[in-house]
Nucleic acid binder design. Structure first.
Lengths: 108, 108
DNA sequence: TATTTATGCAACCAAATGATTGCATAATCA
DNA sequence: TGATTATGCAATCATTTGGTTGCATAAATA
């Protein structure tokens, strides 16, 4: 199964998990406490996130702490870049238009 | 069926469609030409994108031109913002560390 | 007017998805 | 050592997904 980061962030529970582990490493059990689904369901989400190379893990005794590999999120940012270019460009055009309208107004 | 933009961009075909209609309005037929799937399959993708309020449409005769509502893409950007804060912060910290190491090096 | 063309909708289907329960294994604790 | 706890894996299930074919409707063209 080939999965990419866009699949990973498609599910709302997974997005919530990503936010939770963005700033602190958490165990599957600690994560499961935050949701109304079973621990196993959370574990499956973790597995998917892991397959997408979104996670770092550290084993401490019998616990496993998962944390977000934040750099991987930049892939979404990079994909957005092409659209950002467009909306920034259009904003500039709108800005130009407003300046032009203002100068016309000043002349009259 | 409640769908959000993260669902919309989860599918690679839909992502390709979004890129194609980001800068120019296209008809379903024109879009279908770009893929190896049937026109109806493309139409279903368009329907989903439409439900996510990602599209603007203009009817010209019997043709319908679809174009991306680019502003809607900012929702993804906004969600990313929380992660961007983290990675920029960590970059700054790394930067500070390098400066510190450099000054220590200069002293020796 | 008759035919072609562009589109959307419905029915159907195989595969993927998100969840469940049950079980196995490994580490901790009494 | 025996019981408990943390985790992962497998089987199962209902629902969703992405695709197909077929059909209906509306606009353009011969």
């Amino acid at each position: 199964m080939k999965r990419d980061i866009f699949q990973a962030i498609a599910d709302p529970t997974r997005r919530a998990i990503l936010v939770l582990i963005a700033t602190q490493a958490l165990t599957p059990n600690a994560l499961a406490d935050q949701f109304d689904i079973t621990r196993q369901a959370v574990s499956k989400h973790i597995k998917i996130l892991n397959e997408c190379e979104l996670l770092e893990q550290e084993k401490v005794g019998r616990e496993i702490y998962y944390e977000l590999k934040i750099d991987k999120m930049k892939e979404v940012d990079q994909w957005l870049e092409q659209f950002r270019k467009i909306w920034e460009n259009r904003f500039d055009q709108l800005d130009d238009l407003l300046i032009k309208l203002k100068s016309q107004n000043d002349e009259s």
